[in-house]
Amino acid sequence: MPTPSTTATVLFTPDEDEEGFLPEGPRPIVLDGREALLWVNIQTAPDATQGALHVRYWDTGGTESWALPGRPGFALPTDRPGVVLVGLDHQVGTFDLDSYEWTPLGAVPDPHPRTLINDAEPTPDGRAVVFGTKDTRFADPLAGLYLLTLGDNRVSRLRGGQTCSNGKVITAGDGGLTLFDIDTPTRTVVRYRLDAAARELVEAGVALDLRGEPGFPDGMVDAGTETVIVAFYNPEPVAAGRAVRYDLRTGAAVEEWTTPGSPRVTCPCLVRHGDGVRLVLTTATEGMPAEQRAACPAAGSLFVAETRLAVAPASPAVRLA
């Protein structure tokens, strides 16, 4: 039986092409009582050293942007109104959306100069964050996984040997915390046992082998009932991008979505809408030759689609207090 497929539609197209260079990490957020979508644009051009935060409000469709003093790999809502936790170059800190104040909390220990902080996920209690780094050349295993604990703002290396640490999902069960992690060039989702208190990570095998799929697995989100949605960044000149929901127990594809005119899908996000759940997908123009960019008019846009999900798993806020 074929996997049920839904065509996503464009939710937001940036006014400037540079704003669609590398959008990632969409998250639901509430600002001044208004439900919104938060995401980062890691950088605005291949040689850019700065990026930005973006917000789109669901009630009006209006947007806001904040330029940052570096390249943001992630932005996570926190328990402080108007304050987000941001991974910026080699630092992790808070950014106040009202005052524009950047406050570093911690830094990657002994970072390689060719790496940057990339994707992240808070633990279910919001008291810790697992984040990864990436080799900006996407070539060598210079990157790794790190743990930030709030309260002491301590950053520890959990493992090295990665090249481009991307999507993450953390679940809690009787056996403790489980981390599902994507190191993009491997085209796999690896399962780990995470002990945040002991600051230890133990590999527990491959959860999903995606080497037969077109494109590279990038961002990932928990879809509940032991399923995850994976976004695929496809550098080939294809007509559309894809995101797929997989069953972690069987590895089977359960549901998929396509993004016409935008093959480089970076990250998924689930948002509650009415009595259902919608999927938001960020896409990028990063690295597109001019001819391919002309053939992909929606590249760099955000997309939205209906899903078959009845509920979306809770997205924990980072607890700074």
Rank of each mutant, 00 (worst) to 15 (best):
T133P: 05
P109R: 15
D96G: 10
D135M: 09
E121D: 04
Q43A: 13
T136W: 09
P124A: 07
F95K: 02
P46G: 13
R154I: 11
P113R: 13
G87N: 07
A52M: 13
F95E: 05
D79F: 00
V92A: 10
N118L: 09
L147R: 09
D79V: 02
T44Y: 05
E64Q: 15
T49N: 15
D152G: 05
P113Y: 11
W58M: 10
T149G: 02
P124Q: 01
H90Y: 05
G126T: 01
T49C: 10
P141F: 00
P124S: 02
P109D: 14
L97P: 12
T103I: 06
L53F: 04
D96Q: 09
V129S: 00
Y100D: 11
T103M: 05
P104I: 07
P69W: 06
R127G: 11
V84H: 01
T49W: 02
T136A: 12
P46E: 14
R154C: 14
D110H: 14
T123F: 01
W66C: 08
R127S: 12
P81Q: 06
A67D: 15
L150I: 03
L76S: 09
S65E: 13
A143P: 06
E64R: 15
V84N: 03
Q91R: 13
R56W: 12
I117N: 10
F131M: 04
W39R: 12
R80E: 12
A143Q: 08
T78S: 03
P69R: 05
V84R: 00
E64Y: 04
L105K: 12
L85N: 03
G106D: 13
A52K: 09
D59I: 08
Y100K: 06
L145P: 02
A139H: 11
A75W: 01
T115E: 04
P124R: 03
P77K: 04
R80Y: 00
L85G: 04
V130K: 11
P72L: 02
A128E: 04
F138G: 00
N118Q: 10
A120L: 05
H90S: 14
S99A: 15
